[in-house]
Design a protein around this nucleic acid. Structure first.
Lengths: 129, 129
DNA sequence: CATAAAGTCTGTAACCGTTACAGAGTCAAG
DNA sequence: CTTGACTCTGTAACGGTTACAGACTTTATG
């Protein structure tokens, strides 16, 4: 199967598929006589895996590791857990950070009483150290 | 004042200061005979403004606009409000998105009962479309 | 069978906001 | 005069794509 069909089946953009192969996330593909990439079912599965993991915010490095763990069925799944936990932790940190930004922004924003730029409390607040 | 002192006073890295000037966020600087950039107080204030706005997650484009609004004291501060609101809105969206990722990750993660990779529910879940 | 249209290839650059580095020049203190 | 700290320019890297340009191949239509 060629890249267009792989793209339709996996949901990944064509350019992204080529990119994944280039950076070693996706297994190398065979090539047709004319140089076209040939995809097999396991490529589609990998692409779906990558897509879903990306949607969940995993980095390509994480995904690379998850895919390589997947190849070793006898290993304990502790490593998988740990990657997942670390990622979840990172997400929670980002949420906390964004929440504190939102609080600060609301505070600053609430101080505006709708006059002219000269008396704008928002700009004033942003200028403070 | 030279860039080192501007950096110390503003809290921005030297490289970042030069970058801000290059992309037109920071006002152009005068140059000494030997080509060194010369900073005045208003540059320091701009840099502090930029730094604080960046810490609050505003994009450089937003900041460019905020700084240009700041130069027009007679305008209504509605434009400032609207940039702030839009940014706050974006942050809330990102929070919601991250929260849904976190929920999904917890769900997936909870399904793991600690066996081998072969039966790993996390990897299985990630492989599903 | 010729041609047009769609698909694919490679290589390169753009996006954002920095940061880092190389190699050259400048300035102040000892 | 030399050493060290500072600054300059230009370029490339980071992550994760996406978007080209220009060449080639395959498929569909006349």
């Amino acid at each position: 199967m060629k890249i267009g069909e792989a793209s339709r089946l996996s949901g990944c953009h064509i350019e992204t598929i080529r990119y994944y192969e280039r950076v070693g996330i996706l297994s190398p593909t065979a090539r047709s006589e004319s140089g076209y990439r040939c995809y097999a079912d396991h490529h589609i599965q990998q692409l779906r895996f990558i897509l879903h993991a990306r949607e969940l915010g995993f980095s390509l490095d994480d995904i690379r590791e998850l895919l390589s763990l997947k190849e070793q069925p006898d290993l304990s799944c502790q490593a998988v857990d740990s990657i997942t936990e670390k990622h979840l932790h990172g997400i929670r940190n980002r949420i906390r950070h964004l929440e504190s930004l939102a609080r600060e922004l609301r505070r600053i924003s609430a101080s505006c009483s709708g006059g002219h730029i000269a008396e704008c409390r928002i700009l004033e607040a942003l200028g403070k150290p």
